[in-house]
Structures are given as C-alpha cells and as structure tokens.
Amino acid sequence: MSPSSVKAIAEPRGAPRRGWHRFANPGRFLRAASKVQPWLTAFGVVLTAVGLIWGLFFAPADWQQGDAVRIMYIHVPAAWLASAGYLMLALCSAASLVWRHPLADLAAAEIGPIGAGFTALCLATGSLWGKPMWGAWWVWDARLTSVLVLFFLYLGHITLVRAFDDPTRGYRAGAILALLGVVNLPIIKFSVDWWNTLHQPATISLTGAPSMYIGMLWPLAFSAVGYACVFAALALAGTRAAVMERRIRALLLAEAARAEDSVPGAADALETQVPA
C-alpha cells in the first residue's frame, strides 16, 4: 500500500481524533473540567429541584392513578439515564479499545457506579410505583427483566474493572464487557413493543406526540434535564478525582525512586515491585 493511500484512509478520522486527544493531556482536561463542573452541578441541582417540587406539589394528579403518578417524575428520568449512561460507558470503552484514549478508561470506571446507582433508583421507584398500581412489587416481564440485566451489567463492569492487579487489564476486560452489553439497550427500548409486557409502552417517543397532559410534561422535562446534568457532573467530578489520584500515585512512585537512588543497590529491588 502506498503512503498516499494509507493517508487517504487515515485522513477522514484524523480530525475528530485530534479533537478528543486534546484532552489526553491531563492538565488540560483538569483545567477544562474544573471550569465546566460548577456550572453543570448548579444547573443540575436547580433544574432537578424545580422539576421534583413542581411534580410533587403543583402538577395535577392522574385521573386513574391519583397521586402515585408523581413517582413518574423520578422513575422516568432515572430509567432514561440508566440507558444513556450505559451508552456513554460503551462509547468510552470503544474509545479505549480502538483509540487507546488515556482518559476513556478512567471515565468508564467512574460512569459504572453512577449508572448502577441510577438503575437501582429506577428499579426501586418502579417497584414502589408498581405495588399500588399494578398490584405487584415485581413481575418477570421483558421490560423489567431487561432493566435488571442492565443493572447486573453495570455491577459486572464495576467488579471487572477493579478485579486485576494490573489496571490496564481490568480496563480492557471491562471495556469488552461493556461493549457486549450494548445489545441489551435496544432490547430494553423495544421490549414493550415486541412482547406482551405488564409494563406499558412508551408515552414519549421521537416520532409521535406524547400522550401526556402538558402540565405533567413540563415538570418531567425539568427533572429529566436536571438529572442528566447531575449525572454528567458526577461523572466529570469522578474523572477529575481519578486523574488527580493517578498523578498522586505517579508522584509517590517518583519520590520513592528518588529516595532509593541515594541508597546504592536499592533501586533494583524497587524496580521489581513497581509496575512499568
């Protein structure tokens, strides 16, 4: 293959890769993240508070569900973020496996527990909603089961990433699991259309008008955008902390190496303990 044809293949993806790799520099990432994060946190907290207070006290009760419908303002955003968070986890995993982006592994490891938390929130509020409305805390229908599988995928990722002595191997294994689990996302989305489920089909879709009263749609929009900002802020804060913790480890190792340098012969012994 001639150099020019190689270049032709490489060129189209050259530009976006350069874009992401700007943040491969941890110092630049930390500076950018510390500027964005306070705003993201503030937006998230304020929008979520407005959405939840509106939903709890001011939105109308449903004609057949009564006030139990207010659980929707938590359950629906949590469910959306459980899936969206997994998509982010998968994108980070792809960026790690294909492009070896140094921040993607750290971000994936941080998104895992937060996604699991939101999935747990979705399952718990769904249960609290299902008992008075359906008459059951839990049923094994396709929607509920596929979301439970999503929760276990998150737990598996959390465990796998931390299971190896060599963090690189853990990140690699976690990324592969995360990408395998992506097949579950369309199953969750379309389970209510493909099979008979106890769970109702989607109220809000990209193609059609939502079958929800406008006075209930607004607080839902606020809490959904608010929770999304909270999720992003949490992931960003976690990644910042992880970058700093990595730098602390590097500094400690460097300091230990310097200290051993002054003792002749000890550096070799240290070398065997410190992974390259």
Binding site: T41, L56, A68, H75, P113, L128, A237
Partner: peptide
C-alpha cells in the same frame, strides 16, 4: 395525597441516591 408512603419513599430515594454520590465525589476531590 393518595399512596403517600410510596411517594415519600420514592422522593427520599430520588434525593438521597444522587446526594450520596455527590458527597463521595466531593470528598474524593478534596
């Protein structure tokens, strides 16, 4: 308000779960 225990439990979780994550992240950063 109908179904008050279920609603109260849901809203408590809705605040506590993100708050716990936020507190953890704040302490780690500090």
């Amino acid at each position: 308000m109908t179904h008050l225990p279920f609603i109260a439990a849901s809203y408590a979780l809705a605040v506590l779960v993100p708050a716990a994550f936020g507190l953890n992240a704040y302490q780690r950063l500090r």
